[in-house]
Computed example of a mutant assay.
Amino acid sequence: HDRNPQFVTLSDGSIRNGYTVKLLNMIPEPRTIIVTLGGLPGAEMSIVGVDLPADRSFAVQVEPDRLKMLKVFVRLPADQIHGQAQTFTFRVEDKVSFESNEYTATFNAPEIAR
């Protein structure tokens, strides 16, 4: 999770958090890695530099023997926010070998006035 700012309130009232996702390809061939948002109903993500509409899953090319860093924004509509911190996962899976891994992250939001 990016530290500053913890979250941004967008003009439509939704909340956006920023993350850095690192994909390491340690084999001498290119890989297609599927990055999926798990949990956090109603949320969608976008990746800086990827000209595709926001979604819950993206296929990312990673060059051989390289680390690919992605700047990922996760947006959650205001009516789906249930507290200042909600956990969710980033799941990554190799499209060919089906190797996978998950990382549990936290989505931060402002305190809701009651």
Score class of each variant (00 low, 15 high):
R56F: 04
I33W: 04
L52Y: 04
E111A: 04
V35N: 04
R91D: 08
E44S: 00
R114E: 08
H1D: 15
A105H: 08
F98D: 03
S57D: 15
V8A: 13
F98Y: 08
L23V: 07
D55E: 03
E29I: 12
T32L: 12
T20N: 07
T89R: 14
R91N: 07
N25Y: 05
H1I: 15
N108P: 03
I15T: 14
K22E: 13
Q6N: 15
V50Y: 12
I33F: 02
N4G: 13
S97C: 05
N108A: 00
P41A: 07
E93G: 10
P28V: 00
L40W: 02
V35H: 04
T36M: 12
V96G: 10
I34D: 00
I27P: 09
P110F: 11
P64H: 04
D12A: 12
G38S: 04
K95M: 08
V21W: 15
E102K: 10
T87E: 08
I47E: 02
I33L: 04
R31K: 10
G18I: 03
R114H: 07
P28M: 09
V72K: 08
A109Q: 03
D12M: 10
Y103D: 03
F98K: 13
Y19F: 14
P53I: 01
H82V: 08
D12Q: 12
S57L: 09
Q6E: 07
D94W: 05
G18A: 15
R56K: 10
L76P: 10
S97W: 09
R66G: 00
Q84Y: 04
V50D: 05
Q6M: 15
Y19K: 07
